[in-house]
Amino acid sequence: MNRSSRQGASGVWIIAALVLLLLILHQDNWFWTDDTLVFGFLPIGLLWHAGISIGASLTWALATVIAWPIDEDVERKLVAEVEEDEVAS
């Protein structure tokens, strides 16, 4: 196993752990009956879930860096192959 594939495998585990964490945080029983208005206008339950959306976006941003499933060389080859087919047809 080379260095980049080892990094990719550990990256997948990190992303899997972060997604699991997001799913656990999504079930926010602790704010279920809390009627606090953050900044005086935003219900805390809504703010928490907006935060989950931002957290999801950050997690997926990290995934594109440390756990992207396609090797760039393979992708280049695939795209070139399809372009050749198109030219031929």
Partner: peptide
């Protein structure tokens, strides 16, 4: 009430991107 956001929107934010990925 506000629970609709968690039920339909923040869940989709996690799961839709998971499916794309």
């Amino acid at each position: 009430g506000i629970g609709v956001y968690g039920m339909l929107a923040s869940s989709s934010g996690i799961i839709h991107s998971l499916c794309f990925f």
